[in-house]
């Protein structure tokens, strides 16, 4: 079974965060379930397994460890991830480039934005370098640390080919 490591738009939905946790308790059982689902990715019709790159997984883990999500918030994120995964499968999208070029791209972005909106965030897409700007609706700018994985556009742009050309881990 061919396995492809690509950036998946659902990564954005999963790691939506910039909430500054008052008391982060680490990754809860329900957060772990969502994380496991995210790590498993989506299997396309031809058997290709599309999974997030390791750098996105660790970032998702970090964010879930730092920030506490209610079960209701997790449910919203999971629903959005399921919808986006379904589109990727239905459209047979094998790479970030295909996702971005897809006629369903805007629909996926809107699904992600809606998920953020429902848990109290607005998102301004960034790029693979600067990430996204996520602002809590209270008006407080919480653009502290942004990672590429939370950037709508950057996740789509970072295909495996791009990762191979650009060193993320070695300076």
């Amino acid at each position: 079974m061919k396995k492809t490591l690509i950036a998946v738009i659902s990564a954005i939905v999963l790691v939506a965060v910039l909430a500054i946790a008052v008391s982060a308790a680490g990754i809860s059982a329900n957060e772990q379930k969502l994380l496991d689902k995210f790590k498993a990715g989506v299997t396309l019709e031809d058997g290709t397994v599309v999974t997030p790159p390791a750098v996105y997984i660790t970032q998702a883990e970090q964010q879930l460890a730092k920030d506490d999500f209610t079960d209701a918030e997790l449910a919203k994120l999971e629903k959005a991830m399921d919808e986006i995964f379904a589109i990727i499968k239905a459209e047979d999208l094998h790479s970030g480039r295909e996702v971005k070029a897809s006629a369903k791209y805007n629909e996926m972005v809107q699904i992600a934005e809606k998920a953020f909106d429902e848990i109290g965030y607005t998102v301004t897409p960034g790029d693979e370098v600067n990430g996204a700007n996520i602002v809590k609706k209270t008006g407080v700018d919480m653009t502290a640390t942004i990672v590429a994985v939370v950037a709508l556009v950057s996740v789509l742009a970072l295909s495996a080919a791009v990762i191979a050309k650009k060193r993320l881990l070695v300076k």
């Binding site: 750098v55 660790t58 060193r167 881990l169 070695v170």
Partner: peptide
Amino acid sequence: AADLEIEFNDMLLTEKETLVMY
């Protein structure tokens, strides 16, 4: 450096605490 990029990527999800300095 190019080889390390691959090696480090493989280490990211390893469930063992390793300190790497380069």
